[in-house]
C-alpha cells in the first residue's frame, strides 16, 4: 500500500542557507506523525512545502498520490491546515469563519450547515459559534482553526505547532480533541512541535529533526528504547578526563557512552544499583560529579541522544 505522504530528498535553500536538507520520509494512512525539533530546525519549512505554499528547491513530495508542485490544486483539495500563526478572521464570528471556509472550498449550503454543526460539536464550540473570534480565548481560537481545518473532511490534516502559546489546560484539551479526531475519523495527521510531551503523547511516530535533517524516525517507545534499558546522566565538572572515560568503557554493564560536553550519557542495566559504583570510580579518578541521575529513558533523552543537545540548549543556540 502506498503511503499517504511520501517525500523524497525534499530540500529548501534560502540563498546560502539550507533550511531543509534532503529530507525523505513517509507517513502511513491514519497515522499521527510528528516532527519534533527546536525552532528553526526546518519543521515549518517542510510543512510549507507539503501544503504547497513554498516551492522546494529540489526533491519531491506526494500527498495522496498528488505531486505538491505539479498538482497543487489536487493536493489542496485533500488537505486541511492549521498554520502556526493564527489565520482566522478575528472580526468575524467562529461560525462565519467556518461558513466562508466551506464556501471557498465549494461546499454547497446544506453540506456547509451539516459540517459546521459537526465540527462545532467535535471541538465543543457550540456556545462560542456566534462570538467574534477576537473575543475568544487563545485556546478557543485555536480550536476554531482545527475545526476549520477538519471541515472539508481532508485526507490529511496538517497541524503546525498546534498548541504553541497555549496554557497547559488548553494544551491538554486540544491534545484530546486531536487524538479523538484521529481515532474516530479516517484521517492522517501530521504535526510539528517543539514540545517533547506533545510529541510523546500524540504521535504514533516521530521524526526527530535538527538542522534541516531528519535524524531518526520511529515510535516514541522505540526511540526511547534505542537509548538503553536504563539511563544514567552524569554531570561532571570540567569534562572529566580521558582515564575516567576509558575506565567507564571497560565496565561490562555499560552498554554505551556518549559525551555531550559536561554531560555523560550511559546506557546501563539496573541503573539504580550502579550509581554508588560510578561515584566511587569518579572519586578514584579525581573527577568531581556535579549531579547524577538514573531513570528510564524519556523522549527528552532520546532527543539528547540523537541531536547531542537538549531541546532547550538547541533553542538557545538558535537565538544566538
Amino acid at each position: 500500500m502506498k503511503a499517504t505522504i511520501e517525500a523524497e530528498d525534499l530540500t529548501k535553500k534560502f540563498d546560502d542557507f539550507v533550511a531543509v536538507d534532503h529530507i525523505s520520509f513517509a507517513v502511513q494512512d491514519g497515522e499521527i506523525f510528528g516532527f519534533l525539533g527546536p525552532n528553526g530546525a526546518g519543521k515549518s519549512t517542510t510543512i510549507k512545502m507539503l501544503i504547497t505554499i513554498l516551492n522546494p528547491t529540489s526533491g519531491q513530495a506526494r500527498i495522496c498520490g498528488y505531486d505538491v508542485l505539479r498538482q497543487r490544486d489536487d493536493v489542496r483539495r485533500h488537505i486541511g491546515i492549521v498554520f502556526q500563526d493564527p489565520s482566522i478572521d478575528r472580526f468575524l464570528t467562529g461560525k462565519e469563519n467556518l461558513n466562508f471556509h466551506g464556501m471557498i472550498y465549494h461546499m454547497d449550503k446544506k453540506t456547509r450547515e451539516s459540517r459546521i454543526s459537526e465540527v462545532l460539536k467535535l471541538l465543543d464550540l457550540q456556545d462560542k459559534e456566534n462570538t467574534p473570534v477576537k473575543d475568544c480565548s487563545g485556546g478557543i481560537q485555536r480550536r476554531f482553526e482545527v475545526a476549520r481545518g477538519f471541515m472539508t473532511h481532508p485526507r490529511v490534516l496538517f497541524l503546525d505547532e498546534p498548541t504553541i502559546g497555549l496554557d497547559i489546560q488548553a494544551r491538554r484539551a486540544l491534545w484530546e480533541y486531536i487524538k479523538n479526531l484521529n481515532k474516530d475519523n479516517d484521517i492522517t495527521i501530521i504535526l510539528t512541535t517543539h514540545y517533547i510531551e506533545e510529541a510523546d503523547y500524540l504521535c504514533d511516530r516521530i521524526g526527530i529533526i535538527d538542522h534541516g535533517k531528519v535524524i531518526a524516525t520511529d515510535s516514541p517507545q522505540r526511540l526511547k528504547e534505542s537509548v538503553g534499558i536504563d539511563l544514567i546522566l552524569m554531570e561532571i565538572a570540567n569534562g572529566g578526563n580521558g582515564d575516567f572515560i576509558a575506565s567507564l568503557k571497560r565496565l561490562e554493564w555499560v552498554k554505551n557512552i556518549e559525551q555531550h560536553r559536561n554531560l555523560l550519557e550511559l546506557s546501563v542495566e539496573e541503573g539504580d544499583r550502579r550509581v554508588p559504583e560510578l561515584l566511587g570510580l569518579a572519586s578514584r579518578h579525581g573527577v568531581s560529579v556535579t549531579s547524577i541521575d538514573s531513570h528510564k529513558p524519556s523522549l527528552e533523552d532520546a532527543f539528547l541522544h540523537y541531536t547531542g543537545k537538549t531541546i532547550r540548549e538547541n533553542e538557545e543556540e538558535q537565538k544566538r
Binding site: 500500500m1 502506498k2 499517504t4 494512512d29 495522496c64 498520490g65 498528488y66 505539479r70 498538482q71 490544486d73 489536487d74 483539495r77 478572521d89 468575524l92 466562508f100 464556501m103 471557498i104 465549494h106 485526507r155 479516517d186
Partner: peptide
C-alpha cells in the same frame, strides 16, 4: 480501507477556474 477511494482519483487533476463565482462572492460578503 482507503485504498479504493485514493486509487480512484490520482492523475485526474482538476484546475481551479479563473473566475470562480462562489469564492468571489465569499470574499465580497466578508
Amino acid at each position: 480501507k482507503n485504498e479504493l477511494e485514493m486509487g480512484t482519483t490520482p492523475n485526474i487533476s482538476r484546475r481551479s477556474q479563473l473566475i470562480d463565482p462562489l469564492p468571489i462572492y465569499t470574499m465580497w460578503l466578508r
